[in-house]
């Protein structure tokens, strides 16, 4: 008990003092930095994306995002490897869902898919993007799993989609290198900022990411549903 108390006190003291220093040197709510100044004032013209976060995520720092997609891919593969079973996993929960859940999921499933797609297609215009949209799509499939005890995704189809969308992202990067000399160069015209078809390759990348993230998160859930503890 005393050990806990001591550890709490030490932690509290160390961490608050660190952040006291921080709030002195970088006051909260301070002005933007040199680098971001360019993003904020030139971002729309240079990338054609009205959403500046998307401009930074996919264009200025697009390579980070490729890495990020890879992290999720590694983790999904790792979950698959860790929970590997010889046969395809058979689901264990045998409790039937109630009528309300069943009907509700039937009603909501297509709408959730549509909403997820909306989020990632409009990633360069409104808050949201591929990762958020993909997460919504995966949620729709969780709903399916909850409402139907026999439901299982089409593994082959999901794998194909996942691979294809990943290859589109990496392939676009390599294409930029071949056509323009820079990896992940925006090779399409920017168009008018604020319109659906604008910002060059950004919407394509976000659609690919949306499909990939949706498929991967669903795959992770499928794996975890299938194990016997």
């Amino acid at each position: 008990m005393i050990k806990r108390l001591v550890s709490i006190i030490i932690l509290a003291v160390v961490i608050t003092s660190l952040f006291m220093v921080l709030s002195e040197t970088a006051p909260f709510g301070d002005d933007e930095t040199v680098v971001s100044h360019r993003y904020i004032y030139k971002g729309v013209d240079e990338t054609g994306s009205a959403n500046l976060v998307t401009a930074v995520v996919l264009n200025y720092r697009g390579f980070d995002t490729l890495g990020e997609v890879t992290v999720l891919f590694v983790a999904a593969t790792g979950v698959g490897a860790a929970l590997y079973t010889r046969k395809h996993p058979v689901r264990k929960n045998k409790v039937e869902a109630s009528l309300i859940v069943k009907t509700g999921s039937k009603l909501l499933f297509p709408m959730m898919l549509l909403f997820g797609a909306y989020i990632f297609v409009h990633g360069h215009l409104t808050p949201g993007g591929g990762f958020q949209g993909g997460a919504v799509i995966a949620t729709a499939f969780v709903f399916k799993y909850i409402s139907d005890t026999r439901y299982s995704i089409d593994h082959v189809g999901f794998t194909k989609m996942e691979s294809a969308s990943g290859m589109i992202f990496a392939g676009l990067g390599i294409m930029g290198l071949l056509l323009g000399g820079y990896f992940l160069l925006n090779i399409l015209p920017n168009g008018t900022p604020g319109e659906l078809i604008s910002a060059g390759i950004l919407p394509i990348i976000y659609i690919a990411i949306g499909i990939k993230v949706g498929a991967e998160l669903t795959g992770i859930i499928d794996r975890m549903m299938g194990v016997e503890a």
């Binding site: 891919f73 996942e162 691979s163 294809a164 990943g166 290859m167 290198l177 990896f183």
Partner: peptide
């Protein structure tokens, strides 16, 4: 020589591998 190729190409191939098993 572009160093990006040493990262971009392996990622591309890694995404390809799951399909190639079919």
């Amino acid at each position: 020589i572009d160093p990006t190729l040493m990262i971009g190409v392996p990622l591309f191939i890694a995404f390809l591998i799951p399909v190639s098993t079919f």
